[in-house]
Computed example of a mutant assay.
Amino acid sequence: MRIVIAPDSYGGTLSATEAATAIAEGWHRVAPADETLELPLADGGTGFLDVLHAVLGGELLPLQVTGPLEGKPVSAHWLKVGEVAYVEVAQACGLHLVPRERRVPAVARAASSRGVGELIAAAAADPEVTRIVVGLGGSSNTDGGAGALAVLGAQPLDGAGEPLPDGGAALARCAALAGPPVLPARVHLVLAADVDNPLLGQHGAAAVFGPQKGADADAVTELDAALGHYAEALATAVHRELTDLVTAPGGGAAGGLGAALLACGGEQVSGAGLVRELSGLDTALDSADLVLTGEGSFDWQSLRGKLITAVASASAARGVPCLVLAGQVSVGRREAAAAGVEAAYSVSEHAGGVEASMADPAGTLAALAEHLAGQWRTPGSA
């Protein structure tokens, strides 16, 4: 059998490369002669840069930028491939940069995307760069991209014309922006979003993603209202219709950074679709007998443009079964089948609980792959 192993990263426990290695190792315990192709992928979130660097080559350029909390610096990179620059939001303001014990309402209100603006500015300053692709996902902020745009000249101001502090909550006092965000005319901005959620409302940045960043019900309500207030000032500054910014698919990605970069004239694309194209996934699937993919949690958010849907739809188009090996699974069989998933399996369930799976992420993932190899190998295969 020929098995394509194409996972995303697993929620801060395993990188996509580590996950692919673990799955392949487990599978080969049962079927050592099977041909496995490890193809680590990403959808715009954590690991976006590593995956593209492995596929495209290019030069990783280091940069110390402002992190998501209290202005403390973090180390990041941007990737230059010819005239194209790639930026990963999660490197500057990723949720993994906020310790679990600090994911509380006060921090959710204050986390900033300023470092993303610094990465974009550094890439734009390179005279050879004509296209900047920003991978949107895995963020800790819900600031509507205000921190990032402040670096590009669009500092939020209060009613007295004073700069507002970073963070989404402060945007409730936003009366105007210092000016429109500015990028060189030669630069075309592309938003590689990991989800298609809009900026505001029930399916927006605060309501859907705020809780995983530490926001409670009160903080979610406060942040959603603050983002709406900020969006009005942003629309005025860039001469855009407010409705366009707050309802655009992907506007809610990365804590609202999607909407901010759309306001800069950016073009929104599927992050998973972009990686699918650049990685050669479709060509790999043309000769596959089975596809294994996965991520930390296979839930309803996975069905809104994340990597698993891209892999599953490409597999289904070729009649190749696609199995999901996720840390946890909450998508029903019917919904999974509609997305092109043949079957989904939970690592934590197979390991006997979340605690056991988290204690040894690679080992328990490999054990699940070993178990599935016994079930899914073609009868008579070597």
Rank of each mutant, 00 (worst) to 15 (best):
I23W: 02
D224M: 08
L257G: 12
L292K: 00
G265K: 00
D244P: 00
P165F: 14
L189K: 02
E355H: 06
S113L: 13
D34M: 03
A42R: 01
A254P: 08
V275W: 06
G256W: 11
P361S: 07
S302T: 15
G71N: 08
V87E: 05
S287F: 01
L189C: 08
G210Y: 03
V116P: 05
G319C: 11
L365V: 09
V311A: 11
A154K: 01
S140Q: 03
L227Q: 01
L189A: 10
A362Q: 05
H350C: 09
T293D: 06
L49V: 08
A22V: 04
V84I: 14
S9N: 03
V81A: 14
V129S: 07
R109C: 15
E232K: 10
A219Y: 05
D126C: 06
H203Y: 13
A248S: 10
D194T: 09
W376S: 01
A316W: 04
E128Y: 01
A339I: 09
D224Q: 10
A85Y: 07
T36V: 09
V30R: 14
A337G: 10
L41S: 05
N141R: 00
W78F: 14
V220D: 08
V84Q: 08
V220K: 02
H229F: 00
I5L: 10
Q375L: 15
V320T: 14
E118Q: 15
A356S: 06
P73H: 07
H239A: 15
A172H: 03
T17I: 07
V55Y: 04
V238L: 09
L372F: 07
V275Y: 06
L79R: 01
S297G: 10
R186D: 12
G117K: 06
A217W: 01
A90I: 06
A31R: 15
A260G: 14
Q64Y: 00
V291D: 03
S113N: 13
L177H: 08
V341Q: 07
L52F: 10
A108L: 08
E232S: 04
G255A: 12
A22K: 01
C93Y: 02
L274H: 07
